[in-house]
Design a protein around this nucleic acid. Structure first.
Lengths: 157, 157
DNA sequence: TATTGTTATACTCTATAACTATA
DNA sequence: TATAGTTATAGAGTATAACAATA
């Protein structure tokens, strides 16, 4: 079992998950990646774009393109940051919250399925291994995304 | 530690890996996803497109688009399948083999990095968990890809 | 000087649906 | 009838580089 096997297993799992999620979300006109953004905003409203980029393991340009699409559909809104003139804060609209709640519910069974074959301990160790992998890969190669661990929300807003 | 945490950890790890791999390959004009195709062909030459789709966790349309690009760059070639008139077999060209070998070497350190923080047992269990996850997600949702496990090569060719 | 975000641009990947040809 | 692959089409996501405004 070598590095390539691990890489391919990771790829297979991610793509399978992405496809299943897309299939689940598409009827609502939301992609799997957009759902990730909605979730990040539901967990920490009024994030800056920079913070959102970090939490969604994305990059500023990609993230912005997605925000423009979501804004056009009025699922999110962006406002000037009250204390940092450079920044903008992103929030779910009422409709965005509704859609997120709906999709969250619709995807509950799938998340359960994810856990079905795994013992509690296995899940914990799987997640911790994946996070460690991520940190290792990002070390000294920061790009714009970093480990999507829960961080204290910016309460200066 | 719930299903969403697992999903986000999987996403974070995959995207980090994909970025690092892309960064490594781009100077050679090959994307991370194209490298996956080259690897699949290096492991099992003269695969049918269908077989390649399975091994790369892809779908026929995406796979074809990639093959067209790789064919244009003369890294692969497609021939009619000798016994099945519907099928085509895909192989690396000499140049394709060279590029694959080069890129494989260039990415060796990265694969080592992947394994660095993990004990042998951890790698094995991580891979097996990821594969189990993949199978679970694909069960009754076959799409076109399935678990990319090593299969006997078609020797009717 | 560094950071936040925008713009322009380009390209790959992704996928569906309708199709042809062969098994 | 089912399978292998193609075509047309569309859109999303991805990323780089140059830029403006603010910290």
């Amino acid at each position: 079992m070598n590095g390539h096997d691990l890489a391919m297993a990771l790829r297979g799992a991610y793509l399978a998950m992405h496809r299943r999620t897309d299939a689940l979300m598409t009827p609502f006109g939301v992609t799997a990646d957009q759902f990730v953004v909605l979730c990040a905003l539901a967990e920490g409203d009024a994030l800056t774009q920079r913070e959102l980029v970090i939490r969604t393991s994305s990059d500023p340009s990609t993230s912005r393109a997605m925000l423009v699409l979501l804004e056009r559909r009025q699922l999110i809104e962006r406002r000037p940051h009250p204390t940092d003139g450079r920044a903008r804060t992103v929030s779910l609209t009422v409709e965005g919250k509704r859609i997120h709640r709906d999709l969250w519910r619709k995807s509950e069974a799938f998340r359960k399925e994810l856990l079905a074959d795994l013992a509690q301990d296995d899940v914990a160790s799987l997640v911790s291994h994946l996070r460690r992998l991520t940190s290792a890969m990002e070390e000294d190669h920061p790009g714009f995304a970093s480990t999507p661990e829960r961080r204290p929300v910016d309460r200066t807003i």
